[in-house]
């Protein structure tokens, strides 16, 4: 066991620098469209990772994660249009706003578990969607908020604007690596282990003296804030905050990404998100039946590879290494 971990670590030593180099290289080797595809895929990768914190680690299956993604986007759009597009202002506002939302919703939703939790998160998401469509003076109604200015950082002449596809892509790469790294640190920390404990057996953990409700709330808020921040990036990329970003279908799609990639692995959902986005983008150009294909793929994973892509890779590796 020890040797295999060491071997895995040795093999993975170059994984992160290789990933970073690959991400950096994208604009040099691929066209502008692929850069935009990579941008949204990365955004969804972090969104899926943040949901994994709830689904895969804490055992809270939410069908309302789009609420934070969309809400963060609206807060960013509103702030950028009416105040400033300075990310040093916008992102803290988004983080504070989504944290507040998550505390309020979590206070209510975390009273329930299982399917009830799933339904309650769905209900909150749909209520926010309804609010976005109705509250036209603030949200722009069904057309959403268009004309979001390009984001920038800095003050006065010392500022740097993320205009253009490539600059924005690198902004997203930095944000994605930072948030991804942060989430991976979180699940590797004692806090993360406590979450897994809650998922496996909440009562046992409570009997050990853990205030499990607080842990769940912290995970819920954390996941919400990360989703809100990438939601803001998504809106800055599209320059448009749309109510559809809050719709439950988005929540369902992110859940799909988590499961296909492998819940409870962090890397898996990120991979799942990238694959699903690419699948949707390329397959839908060739066939109108892409939803059937995606559904079949999903069902196949659920039935035959519940550990997702990462689970399959691990099983194969372990089998390869097993002494003959």
């Amino acid at each position: 066991m020890t040797t295999s971990v060491a071997r895995a670590a040795r093999r993975n030593r170059w994984a992160v620098p290789a990933l970073v180099l690959a991400l950096v290289a994208v604009p040099f080797v691929l066209g502008t469209f692929e850069v935009s595809l990579a941008t949204t895929a990365l955004i969804f990768a972090v969104l899926a990772m943040s949901l994994d914190l709830l689904v895969g680690y804490t055992g809270l299956v939410s069908l309302g994660h789009a609420a934070f993604f969309g809400f963060g986007g609206y807060v960013a759009a509103y702030t950028a249009i009416h105040l400033t597009g300075n990310l040093l202002v916008v992102l803290p506002v988004v983080a504070a706003g989504t944290a507040l939302l998550a505390v309020v919703l979590g206070f209510l939703a975390l009273r329930t578990t299982g399917v009830y939790f799933l339904m309650l998160t769905l209900a909150f998401g749909q209520m926010l969607f309804g609010l976005a469509v109705k509250w036209t003076p603030v949200t722009g109604g069904s057309d959403g908020l268009a004309g979001v200015p390009a984001p920038f950082v800095g003050i006065g002449p010392m500022s740097y604007a993320f205009t253009g596809r490539v600059r924005f892509y690198y902004l997203v790469v930095v944000a994605v690596l930072a948030l991804g790294w942060f989430l991976i640190r979180v699940v590797g920390s004692p806090f993360g282990h406590a979450l897994v404990g809650i998922k496996d057996n909440e009562e046992r953990l409570a009997s050990l003296g853990y205030d499990t409700w607080r842990y769940k709330m912290a995970a819920y808020v954390l996941a919400g804030v990360v989703a809100g921040v990438v939601g803001a990036l998504f809106v800055f990329f599209n320059r448009h905050a749309a109510p559809e970003n809050l719709f439950w279908v988005v929540s369902g799609e992110v859940l799909l990404m988590v499961i296909i990639g492998g819940a409870g692995t962090m890397y898996g959902p990120a991979l799942g998100a990238v694959l699903v986005r690419l699948f949707e983008s390329y397959v839908s150009s060739y066939t109108d039946r892409w939803q059937t294909l995606l559904g079949l793929l999903f069902v196949a994973f659920v039935l035959f590879a519940p550990g997702g892509i990462v689970g399959v890779i691990r099983r194969r590796r372990n089998r390869g290494r097993a002494p003959g």
Binding site: A8, I184, G192, T265
Partner: peptide, 11 residues
């Protein structure tokens, strides 16, 4: 075991 392996020792 999967849960343990997710801790980012390689990074």
């Amino acid at each position: 075991e999967e849960g343990r392996r997710t801790t980012p020792r390689g990074v």
